[in-house]
Design a protein around this nucleic acid. Structure first.
Lengths: 204, 204, 204, 204
DNA sequence: GATGAATGAGTCTTCATTCAT
DNA sequence: AATGAATGAAGACTCATTCAT
């Protein structure tokens, strides 16, 4: 197995994936035909099918790869110890999502919504996403545990629930910015911060 | 003078809509064929098409009607003065989403994700959703204004940003519970509450 | 059987026929749906079907009735004795076609082309048309016989062939004016006249 | 670099066109389903659609191609100088129509009537036909001018009107032979000749 | 009788996938 | 290995006709 060939293969794969991202994002998963992707990738039908055996696999790969890229971006934020306090944390994670978008030919936020929808009827995709998001949530819970330890959260705070709230904020940021479009990470962080600075005796 | 009463017409319409909800939610918007809906509605193709002129219209109606029902459920929560404090507010709104779901033959959360995805490529649906969600967010901003006035939020809090954060929490609750499935309104409220009770001097 | 009812029936029939003419002429025979005709006639589906048991019958009636009207218009021209000489004859007949058109809500020429086409695949229509046109041609042969007797045509002229040529001129006038649109009866008569006045020794 | 040669492509195209001609002519334009043509062409639906993007295009191509073939046949007759005298001219042109028919798998006369009818509601077809027939008529007017110059027509004859009369004779020949069926080019020529030899002082 | 809602077979067209060259 | 022409099952939608009210 010559090395060049492997490299070439990886390149080709990416070429197809990028074509798929472009198409999916502008037309949606189902309205995109294999022919659209084939044309956009500048390869032949046979070539594309030799890399991805079906449209479903291609969708799965497109989403999985995308999620993998995001995970890499998120990693340093999640790994920081001590973690940045909640509002800053949310802002940094939202920035990662936005920057990831800007860097590539595709918009992660729109692709995410497509993936969520598809996950409703695609078992494998659902599992992939569940793993990704619950893995992320576990890391958030770790961060919350750390905040609690540092006294940033009260002793009776529930890190898993804080993680749920923070994941909701993140997912909701993605949805909101794809659907309405006028939210940026700073807005979100400010809103979260304002809530954190609220008079706590009225919070049940 | 129609041979069929307005009442009956409305009933038939609902019959089709319920069939559509059932199908959409179990198979997704595009994987559902008109024939699935026709069979499920126990009507003929022609009859279905006399109520909804195309699949696209049917999708639009299914989503719009659903959103309308949710709006009604949310109304009393949004209209309460003074509004319940943030965490309670979020809990009640999330409860409305969950209860709405339980009451009908369909799961609003799953349908919502399908709608978000479809809105990426359907202009009219996108507008409908943008109107709905930004209308909802405006009401959230009103509530935030009220909290500020009552001293629940600090004088320098930004109600629009708080609204963005709260909408994100709501949308994210929907996504998270459709994707992972183990969140309930109380978890969310507790997490939000824990954040609110956080030591604010570390919130930037 | 009350007389009013019969009159009313005839009126209704005509009302439907006129609707059919309008639709056929603007959309063609097959692109016109029964619903178009029903709407245009201001009657109900059931009512229309009580007058004409199928679309095919309606087409047949529309064409037959139309042809009947034309026959009446043509009759005096065909019955004149001695008949007008060839060019004048052609002009008068063409005028009858054109005037017939102007008098009604429909354009006989366009309807004729639709009928010719339909006659290719509708046995009954084909027979109706064949009867009509060959009956007309027989009358033209009579006129040609008369011209021959009067010395207008040479003694060796063939009245049946002259009739074929004249029928061709008439049918061709209809087709040409529907397809190109810039022919009027006077043009046709002048052209025919110019040919008749040609130097006959070069005609084989 | 296509896997299939241009030659083969042209052959396949013709294969489909011939299937379409067969079907159209026996069932009419609208009663012919794409499936009829697909079956008759021995190709698959997808293959047929890769050559003709819609039924309408196929109809247009069937008619246009057919007209093109006729034009070639007519060309030498129109190009002869001096042109044959009127009756001979008409006979030769009618022969061309008849022979064209015999040579192929289709009957040009029947197809022509279908095309005329369709042209009523199809803009592009109407233009194609108008161009074809008025182009042909222009050539007829040239011939008439030549006859006039040669003294075959009187000095006051109107070549454009003579062309209209001759085009009418040709179109009418097509219609008459499709509708009644007992006319041949010789009959037509004889009838025209008899008219030309008529006593001209009675022609207005 | 009259109405018009309902029926459902039939149409055109698309598109994921294959396989001969 | 690569190509892209071909396949054909499946989908959205229409419309002549019927029949319950």
């Amino acid at each position: 197995m010559p090395k060049i060939s492997d490299e070439k293969r990886a390149l080709r794969r990416l070429q197809i994936l990028e074509a798929a991202w472009r198409c999916f994002q502008s037309q949606g998963l189902h309205a995109t035909t294999m022919d659209d992707i084939i044309k956009s990738s500048k390869l032949s039908a046979g070539a594309v099918y030799s890399y991805f055996p079906s449209k479903e696999e291609l969708i799965l790969a497109a989403v999985t790869t995308s999620l993998g890229g995001l995970r890499e971006r998120l990693e340093p934020i999640l790994a920081a110890r001590p973690p940045p306090p909640p509002a800053a944390f949310v802002e940094q994670a939202a920035e990662a999502v936005v920057h990831f978008t800007a860097r590539q030919t595709y918009d992660l936020r729109r692709l995410a919504l497509l993936g969520w929808s598809e996950a409703q009827r695609n078992e494998r995709l659902r599992e992939t996403m569940r793993d990704f998001y619950s893995g992320f949530r576990d890391r958030l819970a770790d961060a919350a545990g750390s905040w609690k330890q540092d006294g940033l959260l009260r002793p009776d705070a529930s890190p898993p629930d804080v993680a749920k709230a923070l994941l909701a904020a993140m997912l909701g940021f993605v949805a909101q910015s794809a659907l309405i479009g006028d939210v940026d990470p700073k807005d979100l962080a400010r809103g979260v911060g304002d809530l954190i600075r609220a008079r706590s005796d009225d919070a049940p």
